[in-house]
Design a protein around this nucleic acid. Sequence first.
DNA 1: TTGTGTTTTATTGCCTCC
DNA 2: GGAGGCAATAAAACACAA
Length: 515
Amino acid sequence: MEESGKLQSEENKGSMETNKKRKLKTPAQIYALEKFYDEHKYPTEEMKSELAEELGLTEKQVSGWFCHRRLKDKRLLKDEACANGRQDISSGVVQDHGSGLGQDSCGSTKHGDYKHLDPKEVESRGLYGGHDLLVSDMAFERRNHYSENVCAMDDTSSESSSYLQDKDSYDAEPSGYPIPNGALPSKIPKATTNMRYKPSGYLKVKGEIENPVITAVKKQLGRNYCEDGPLLGIEFDPLPPGAFECKIADPFHETYYMASRAVKCSPEISALKRQPGLSDIYDLYNAKCNSQDSHMEGEDLADFQDKKPQQHSKQRPPLYGHASRLPSRNSTLDLYDHSVREAPSYNSRENCRVGIKHGFEGLKSDSASNRSDHYDGNLAANPKDALLHGYDYVNLKNVQSEYVNLVPSKPMRNPFVSMDTKDRGGLSGRMIKEKMSSEKRMARKQCDDPDTLRMLLLKAANRVDPPLQYNAKEDHIAEMQPHKILRSSMEVSSSFSEDETVNPSSSLDEAIGCH
DNA sequence: TTGTGTTTTATTGCCTCC
DNA sequence: GGAGGCAATAAAACACAA
């Protein structure tokens, strides 16, 4: 805490001396804060300290952020209330698609309740994020689709289910939530833990009851079902003509196609797939996305690359100018950095902006310093172990990387669970543009940032699903073909030795170096 | 490239509660 | 009186249109 505080203050000093510019929080920090805020609108001093420490911020900053965040919520709630009349008209469509619980989440009475509830009381009661959703929650959830997305793999909408379980987990020992591959992040920062990083699976949503569709998908996938998404290497059959003309008419039978729809349907994606480099990752991502609005994916990678230099030039000086200035430990900031920077692709306007505003900046600033520092120190230093032993070294990164993998170019859009439909419907042109822009940046970031890329690749390597391509019991994890992924995703021409296969780090570094 | 609008962050003052 | 929160304000950062 003090370290971080000092760190922060020193940084602030340094920056303040030159100019008293405010510092944007990194996406990682934003994410952590948002996540935390999602659970604790009014964190205690202890929590703040903890969070501040984890994020490398000062308590003051954290407090201020929460304060502003509450104000923001309030304001948004107000706006929401103003727009309520209009929303009510279409509430039938708006509410919780596919879950059948829409009425619960959008009741006008909830709003009234909120108005009469002391926020602190509300928070202390754990109403936020719980089943007993308030309008504020809904507003937040809509806005904060980022967290939704993150949870999309942890649990597409685990807000309700996980919260109750986790509500009082702040002081609980990080138990290491099982992540999709069965690996347990052995060490998850408290702040992280409290942010409900429950990689309980992409398809774990608001309970089975709430998402029969998801259950159906699971059933359909059978043994091929992977908690955190489709299997690497799965090739979905081409869609029959006109497969998408009918919108999830029968989700129980069409989910299979939906899962691949994003990949197959979008010409941009198809183009992307042809693109050497991100294609595999992209596939990985897209396969997981079950995206329904592939039309929004119209971001040409070439376009990314064209603009890349421009973006680079726009980058501000690194927030953390030097790795040495950072604590050696794995801070939450660290942990989040890889993933969250790419992650902030909220559905909401607000969150969208976060992604836009912070995503790139955070990446650049941190990638130059702490990431290489800590990340390499942990994962790259012994990526083999990281691979072999799950995610011991990667901690939250792994959990986050679940998300990272999903966000190379677009946010998670779960057609079953999210409020995307509504969001999209409500998105202004600008929002959409921003959203797309944000997605674009995210993808670009992942191309630009070696560490992120490595993270992606490693994650991808870990995601090769044994049941499909290997016998999980027989095949060693080292055989998860990281090199294969590398080749396909990085277009690394060189062949890798066995050692390289075992030690993806070197290969990755090499690849990244080439990159 | 520039102007404009929006969002985010930081600061400050006031209020309430213990 | 101190701590914590809220609200107002300023300024920076950012996106976008002209």
